[in-house]
Design a protein around this nucleic acid. Structure first.
Lengths: 240, 240
DNA sequence: CGCGCCGGGTGTACGGCGTACACCTTGGTT
DNA sequence: AACCAAGGTGTACGCCGTACACCCGGCGCG
């Protein structure tokens, strides 16, 4: 087009990072439904098919988008004995990140398998609990109960492919988890999980549900018996 | 085509109910993504556009589908003083219905405004709590905390249109609610809600979140201090 | 210096989607 | 007999994701 300038106007080359960031920005501005391969390509001044050199398909684009969002969660501090305060702060940190991108939780819920970033977050939460002395079992159930508070997913969407049955593959998967997500592995094992499928599959979902339900109901009853009111709460209760 | 038979082979006329039921069955069998207007029409032996005589558009079809699913929840019993047991049973009833249709919670989450069926369910839950003597405020927050346990949605998707500002419209909406969902109305009012937008909009979402979070955290701490284990639990704790 | 390779952007095309709009059929009412 | 409305049909449009062949420019190598 314009060949006059000695230096040719050439846009910076597409990168996976630029694609992902623009997709996030587009979703933030115009909503998740506005994120189509075509619209995103337009925004980047490129033809739709160019995107496929950087993301495998749309599903992978969504994966990358939540990866980008999750990266905004501040890194965890050193876990200490005051696990309750630490856990509270960490959940609120995660919430803040997701709140900046209202579309994110909806995407998160549809992810089949937990991504590394998700495992990282679970890992840090579990470490907080374990460092506070909470048993592996209780930590496991607490994580499930907190699940929807952390990201908004309730159900194990499960079925992340058939679990590898060859012992070698299983061992490799476990070794990989032990290296990076030991607390998640421990938690998974503590419930008789298939370790390679991470938290979720193999759990007694009904148990986890009832556990969380009773936690909430018992807590409500406790507040009720203590005469909780929104104006001054009650020393030991939530809602402070 | 075949005019030989005296009685002509004519399929029963389409009805809204048949459309909805077939859509649910299709989603159950082949997954939510398999429910397209075209596929559904095929299944009903009809041309796609015929469906539009019975549902306004696809969004309305999805509304109708969850309406159908919610209708499977058994009707509530008489609320009595043992609210905790009753609430537990009712939540589990709802869960059972949603569990039969794994796609349902995902649709539920994307509904903008609460449907009558949803309001009915909330109403019955709130009545259980109130009949047990729980204050309107506490009942309100408990409902929010239980939200994801009841159907799996966490966030108020909000924005169900601009609230009518004319006093006449507001009064009409309130009157309608007072007639059918008095407990929901009371709960909404108890938090300074815009009553016509039902539970949700106008709430301090951060407060509700923190309330539920602390309920779970405090409950976990309590179990931890009591030495809870999965094998025999602890008298007063969940997970029985 | 020429040449081939290859990573990344392009063009075209296909099948599927939701749905607007005009049309036709049919059974009941007047 | 004439009409009307309700409900099913046919066609078409503009989106979507993406397979596949192509092409271009910079780099390493003989």
């Amino acid at each position: 087009m314009n060949a006059s300038e000695g230096v040719r106007e050439r846009r910076p080359p597409l990168t996976r990072a630029r694609v992902l960031e623009d997709a996030v920005a587009l979703a933030d501005r115009d909503g998740l439904d506005a994120v189509s391969m075509r619209a995103l390509a337009d925004r980047l001044g490129v033809v739709p098919m160019a995107l496929y050199k950087h993301v495998r398909d749309k599903e992978a684009l969504l994966d990358g988008m939540i990866e980008t969002v999750l990266a905004e969660i501040p890194p965890p501090g050193e876990p200490g004995p005051d696990w309750k305060t630490a856990a509270r702060a960490r959940v609120l940190d995660a919430r803040r990140a997701l709140q900046r991108h209202p579309w994110a939780w909806r995407v998160l819920e549809t992810r089949a398998a937990p991504s590394p970033a998700m495992l990282d977050h679970m890992e840090s939460m579990l470490r907080i609990l374990r460092a506070g002395g909470v048993s592996a079992h209780l930590a496991h159930h607490a994580m499930h109960a907190l699940g929807s508070r952390i990201w908004g997913f309730t159900q194990e969407v499960g079925a992340s492919g058939p679990p590898p049955t060859e012992p070698a593959a299983v061992e490799a998967a476990m070794a990989a988890m032990a290296a990076r997500w030991p607390a998640v592995l421990e938690s998974a094992m503590s419930a008789g999980h298939d370790p390679d499928s991470a938290v979720g599959a193999g759990c007694d979902d009904d148990f986890e549900f009832a556990f969380a339900l009773d936690l909430l109901l018992d807590g409500t009853e406790r507040l009720h018996l203590l005469g909780w009111t929104p104006w001054h709460g009650v020393s030991a209760g939530p809602g402070r």
